[in-house]
Each structure stands twice: as C-alpha cells, then as structure tokens.
Amino acid sequence: MSLIKVENLSKQFGNLTAVNNISFEVTEGTIFGFLGPNGAGKTTTINILCTLLAPTSGKTYIAGHDCLKEPSEVRKNIGIVFQDTTLDKDLTAYENLMFHACLYDVKRSVIKERINDALNFVGLFERKDDLVKKYSGGMKRRLEVARGMIHRPKVLFLDEPTLGLDPQTRAHLWEFIIELPKKHNVTVFMTTHYMEEAEVCNNIAIIDNGKIIAAGTPEELKKTVGGDVIYIRTSDNARAKNEIEKLFNLEVSEKDNELFLTALRGDACIPEIIKAVGETVLSVRLQRPTLNDAFLKMTGRQIREQNGSPEDTIKEAVRSYRRRHDRG
C-alpha cells in the first residue's frame, strides 16, 4: 500500500518554480530517499506533505488523506525531523519530549514509558535532565528523531538528518534510522546530500531543479552508470591492453600507467583477465559505481559540487555551525 502519494505536484514562489510537476509513491514500511543538490526542492516538497505549505497545483496524500483538505488527519499520521533544529533549547530533553507527547495527546498511562523508551533508543537517557542548549549537534539530532517517533506516526520525514554531523555521529544516527521500519512499523521519507547514505533506502528519487530526473532502487540507479570499473596494473601494459580487448571485445583505456575498463559484472571478469594476462599483472582493483556516479552521469555534475555557488556554500556552513553550536 502507498502511504505517501504525490501527483503532479508543483510549487511556485513568485516566478521561481521550486517544484515542477513531480509524482511518486512510497510503499508502507520502506525507506524512501529524496536526493538532490541545494535548492532542488526537497524541503519545499516536505513542507507541502506535512501541511505547512499549500501547493500551487497537484495533489498529495498521506495514508489516504489529502494534505490540503484534511490537514488534521495528515498531521496525526506524521512525524518530522526538520532540516533546521526545532527543539526548545531552554527546556531539558525530557521536557521537550513531554511537550511533544502532550501536544500529540499521547495517553497519560503510556507517556512516561514512551519517553523513556525513546530516550534509551537514541542513547540519551543519562542526559535527559540536561537543558538542550548544552547538547552537541549530534545529540540534538538524535533527540529530534526520538521526538518525531513519540506519537508513533505512520510516516516519518527526515530532512537532511545528518547534515553538519561528523562521520561517526552520522553512522551512529543511521544505525537507528535503519531500524525504524522494522521496530516501529514506520515508513521513512528522507532527504540527503550524502549519496552514500542513500544506499540504505529501498527506493530513491533524484530531484534536480524541481524535477524528478530518475527513480528506482539504489541498484537500478547505479546500473545506469553502465557497470563496474576495473583498474589493472601490469608489467607490459601494451600487450595486456591488447589481450583484454580481444577477450571481452571492449575498449580498454590507459591513464597514469594504469589500464581501466568498464564492465557490467566486473567481479566476474577479473578471473578471466588474470587467466589471460596473469603473469604480467601487478595489481587489480574493482570500483563499484556509486549513486554519486549515477547522479554525475544524469546531470553532468557532482551532487555536492566542490565549487558550488558561494551562496549555497555559506548557507550550508551556517547550518552546520548552528547545528553544532547552541543556536541550532
């Protein structure tokens, strides 16, 4: 069953088209990744789905309820971790969760248990009585995930859950995001910049300039790159090149004294290569295509441009800073 359904959704801000006629569905119990560069329209889409923003045209449904016409039904079914932190820094972690639980009218009899469970789940139980302003960025993020789950929503939105966190904290956060569908029977809709993080998704849509340019499982998207890349170093590159080209009927290129070729199933090709030119081989390595390669192939640029527009770079730096320091 589709828990999220988006049909021909568009959103215009003045004459800027932030979301341009997108459609997709998310199946119950799966993790859906919404990937795209800065300004692609990810947050705008989430804001429409969570009833904070009215679309210019198109329809959106959560658990069968129209987001525009039945906002309170939709709100009962969703939990959100916004891109920018939305905790009350002057309250403790426990009070933040209590505030949220009361707002969602969680039953008195289960409220304490839920909060304690949630705090344990994200490993913050020992720090529950600290003011949130004393929390690190990663702790705040984990607390927000816990908060988003307190009322047991059917759908959990995570907008850039790991942006601005160090790799260790990111990995830690992912550990319990991955557990969510099984443990709490929740459907996860997440956005991210980090392509490698999207590997955990069951399905992915890639959005660029407001349009969905590709959708499918991570495997399907990676296949569009055209296969794995095999790199070989030999003592006699000219001869090896010749042999391998004859063997697979494929073009082999050379760069920095290293041969490389693209093959659909690289792992299966390696034994044959060794058999053919074995005695001269010095090293072989295989590179699997990443989602980054897929994005690169589809748009001609990296999702996280090293030299992105200065505005984006600053925007992101400020966000990371805010998240790490108390302002977040």
Binding site: C50, L52, S72, F82, D88, H100, Y104, R327
Partner: peptide, 14 residues
Amino acid sequence: EFGLMKAILVAPVS
C-alpha cells in the same frame, strides 16, 4: 525563528 513553531504547527491541534 528557532523553528519550534513549525513543530507545533505540524501537530494535530487546531
């Protein structure tokens, strides 16, 4: 400014 209002507004309260 600090976002909490968004969290309140997505809650199922009138």
